[in-house]
Design a protein around this nucleic acid. Structure first.
Lengths: 350, 350
DNA sequence: ACGGCCTATGTGACCGGTCACATGCATCCC
DNA sequence: GGGATGCATGTGACCGGTCACATAGGCCGT
């Protein structure tokens, strides 16, 4: 391991010594002014092709890379994106982040990450402060849950931001992009009803307001079919909580034959609770998950679930965020709609 | 003292939709110079407590937040961390990122993410360019795999960086932090041998060099016990590949009774392959995973696996990266060692 | 031929912090 | 008492980009 005595000094010295060339070094090498180099960097049309070629050659020769911090400072705001999310591990969040990162990387833009703890409201304020800094660039709030929504609401109007939300999220005056979870949940519920189940229970993830997304779609389908609407079982994000929820579900209604789970992790916990209670899936109880996490096709039984294009959502959010950042009109987006993937965990009731 | 503020700047600030105060505004409000404000911000001891209080009051009153881009520009390098990783979804990577982010957030530092595609070497160069920019701050390379290692090697010496690696990664002259995967794999293998299995097969993830980490520990334990060393089955990161690997495993040696899987996702695929071949787990075949991903305790059967403290690894990497960034001596770290969690997927052979 | 206009390019200020150095004043030691 | 020392603080340059505005030609119309 090597510990340098003063990297700060070195960075400066290196910059002065020419190891890290600046726009002015390039200008000198190309025999033009620094402003012309800046124009070339920004694809300004007001540069003759001969000059442009000379500048590009100098850039290449010196190995020049524009300094993002200086750019952000001069521009007033960074040309990048910061993602605000309450969790980096959950599939939906991680997957959306992946989509954003990939789209940003293609454009050569920086991506920052900021987690907002769902616990205290104090963290919401800190997060808002954090992304209010111009070097955060545009902000994408993954607002699948209350703390994300709180950040979105508390964000000063002058911060360019968009949200990946639930379909029924309250209007904050921001661009909000959502997958059709409601329709997908209705599809999944109809699939179960169509198999002959009298009704479908629902174990809900915390993200859901009572009126939005997965919960609403489930409710829609039951009402539309005239099926009884059982009480919703709430649980947290973790599988342990889902296991407990599964036990509560069985305790509350031993007659249960079909369950729509808020996501695949929930399905995993519920499935184990059913197993421990001696119920076969799908023989005794059918379960449907949500998200199609990797591996759900290899469970025993393989999980019937709803495939969600979170990566596509992330990509769309990135584009929208950049449009906000640059003050351009919002692009028209096409999202891959969620799709029910029928596998082994659903069957007609016994 | 008189502080003149340029009308243009005011216009800009107004256009931006809210007066964003700068260090000079704070200075004027507190009746001190901008440099004194800077000293307060950086906890310089050379400020009298009365002045400090006045400045802090002004900061609070104006709602001042230092501009990270300006700071990075003046300092020569950003006071933040960029994480380079080849995947954001895999548990080990995502978990390490989470640890880094949390530690950074506590310190109020920015976190950036950069994915390096494992496909082409072109992306390695682009990634190196990206993090060479001073505004990337310090770099943490999650080098669990070849492309991460390639980035680490290609990184110019003047970029402050540390690596989260495999234990046996080649020395790059950088600070490298690793969990004891080798010892843990040996423990897991011994657990299986101790149950009475004649030998243990291994389905390996791509990350592993033949001489490092999980593979090496498995090999150690087999040799030490004088057990035969079966051929390693290689597979990719995804569960589908693991399923295929499981089938190959069975085809190659129908007598298999114990399998150490490269990680829990692999275990999932292998378990399904065993299931489809009519083998009971753990009745016919015992399997051990690696990582203890959330939910593995709720599989059927619950998975015996090795719990890895990736979040702790991330935290340690963050601290080491900051030490590199500031030119401070490396802190001494204590990592939670991996631990074998025995659950239902392992049992004595029939 | 000359003013007007457009294009290509240059000049200097500016963004908001930090750095290096200067200054004012109190303390201290011989 | 005077110079050396130390502390609290101020001044101006600087980081590397961008912005606003100036300027030098070329082409045009009258």
């Amino acid at each position: 391991m090597i510990v340098t005595s003063s990297p700060r000094r070195e960075a400066r010295a290196a910059a002065r010594g020419g190891a890290v060339p600046s726009i002015r070094d390039v200008a000198a090498a190309a025999g033009v002014s620094h402003q012309t180099v800046s124009r070339v960097l920004n694809d300004s049309p007001r540069v003759s092709s001969a000059t442009r070629a000379a500048v590009l050659a100098a850039i290449d020769r010196l190995g020049f890379r524009p300094n993002r911090a200086a750019r952000a400072l001069g521009l007033g705001r960074a040309h990048g994106v910061t993602v605000v999310m309450s969790d980096t591990m959950l599939y939906g969040y991680a997957s959306t982040l992946q989509g954003i990162e990939e789209a940003a990387r293609v454009e050569g833009m920086a991506v920052g990450v900021r987690v907002v703890e769902s616990d205290g409201p104090g963290d919401v304020k800190q997060t808002v402060d954090y992304v209010s800094d111009p070097s955060a660039g545009a902000v994408v709030v993954i607002a699948f849950d209350p703390s994300g929504a709180a950040v979105l609401e508390a964000l000063p109007p002058h911060v360019p931001a968009v949200a990946a939300t639930e379909p029924a999220a309250p209007d904050t005056g921001r661009v909000a992009i959502a997958l059709d979870e409601r329709g997908a949940a209705a599809d999944a519920t109809r699939h179960l009803l169509g198999l002959g189940h009298r009704t479908v229970h629902h174990v809900a993830i915390p993200s859901e307001g009572r009126s939005g997304g997965r919960h609403a779609g489930w409710h829609d389908a039951l009402r539309q079919a005239g099926a009884p609407v059982p009480e919703v079982i709430d649980c947290g994000w973790d599988v342990a909580g889902a296991y407990e929820a599964g036990r509560r579900l069985l305790a509350g209604d031993p007659e249960v034959t079909a369950v729509l789970c808020g996501n695949d992790d929930i399905a995993q916990g519920v499935r184990r609770a059913l197993y421990d209670a001696g119920r076969d899936v799908p023989g005794d109880v059918s379960i449907v998950g949500f998200d199609d996490i990797p591996g759900s096709a290899y469970w025993t039984p393989a999980l019937t679930t709803v495939r969600m294009d979170f990566a596509g959502l992330g990509k769309a959010c990135f584009r929208a965020a950049v449009a906000e950042l640059l003050g351009r009109p919002q692009p028209t987006l096409t999202l891959t709609p969620p799709r029910l993937i029928i596998r082994e965990s659903t069957a007609p009731p016994r």
